[in-house]
């Protein structure tokens, strides 16, 4: 029982970060109808910037701000400078360009910083708070949860209560009509990518201290798990991303703890199949059109 409680809290901690990353993927899907395979590599680039600055200046907060700004710039740059020009005759072209971008960014980071693991130190105490002898969450885990919750709330407010958010939703849902109504669809697309990149950058900065360290391939596995989480929750639903992240985090923790670390990919596949067989669009997918 004690182990179960421990594993549950461990899973929730990991799940928070997968939730944040899945949120970034959902944002881009809703804005541009494309799965951003380069999300992990972009998060690595901003994470390097953040930690380099943070180490040089000695303040975690400054690094965090650098991550935010860097994410905005990188997302806008990728959309304006690259994704805009990719032909949409074939939806796979975006994927291939994203994969090429991953190779390019990873290699450039490797050239500049080298392939060594660098320490990514946490700003808060990582010792778990024990309740009744069972280690639960640490202060750093609480910080992660707080940040992810803040992001979700801010995004919800942005999309539902602000004019910009309304324009972004219109541009994603019906681009032609929005253009006729005066919405600058291109700029909304850029903004969507920039926001998603910011969320991804924050997720990257949050998770790196709990991983092996900062190195060019640090986010590869996180991307795969977060993609699964976004699928489980439904690509169209931000709430789904968070729920999916929690589910994936819990499953990974339980399987690691009871069945062995090697079997976690099988568990992820099982969860995906179980959810998608019942609801092919993910848990929070909307009502589908009637089919014949």
């Amino acid at each position: 029982m004690e182990r179960f409680v421990f594993l549950t809290f461990d899973g929730l901690s990991r799940g928070a970060v997968y939730a944040a990353f899945a949120l970034a993927l959902v944002l881009i899907w809703r804005a541009a109808r494309v799965v951003n395979f380069a999300q992990g590599a972009m998060a690595v680039v901003t994470a390097y910037a953040a930690y380099m600055v943070s180490d040089a200046v000695g303040s975690y907060l400054v690094g965090f701000v650098v991550a935010l700004v860097g994410g905005l710039l990188l997302g806008a740059l990728v959309e304006r400078g690259l994704m805009r020009f990719v032909g949409h005759a074939n939806p796979l072209n975006d994927v291939i360009v994203a994969l090429g971008l991953v190779l390019l960014l990873t290699a450039v980071v490797g050239i500049i910083f080298g392939g060594e693991f660098r320490a990514a130190n946490q700003p808060f105490d990582t010792r778990a708070i024990e309740v009744g002898g069972v280690p639960l969450m640490s202060r750093y885990d609480l910080f992660i949860w707080g940040t992810v919750a803040t992001i979700v709330v801010l995004l919800a407010l942005l999309f539902t209560r602000t004019a910009v958010g309304l324009r972004m939703r219109a541009a994603a849902f019906a681009p032609e009509v929005s253009r006729l109504l005066g919405v600058n669809v291109g700029r909304m697309l850029t903004l969507g990518w920039a926001l998603a990149a910011v969320v991804g950058a924050v997720a990257g900065v949050l998770i790196l201290p709990t991983e092996l360290g900062l190195h060019p391939h640090a986010m590869d596995i996180v991307f795969a798990s977060s993609f699964a989480a976004a699928i489980v929750g439904g690509l169209d639903s931000p709430v789904g991303a968070v729920v999916g992240g929690i589910i994936v985090g819990l499953i990974l923790s339980y399987v690691s703890g009871y069945l062995g670390a090697a079997l976690t990919p099988v568990a992820v596949l099982a969860v995906l199949l179980a959810v998608l067989l019942l609801r092919p669009g993910g848990i929070f997918s909307g009502v589908r059109a009637r089919t014949v």
Partner: peptide, 16 residues
Amino acid sequence: NLPLAIFGLTLIIVML
């Protein structure tokens, strides 16, 4: 790293 960077760049350019 350089061959990988060239590879990635080639992919992007060919797709565009």
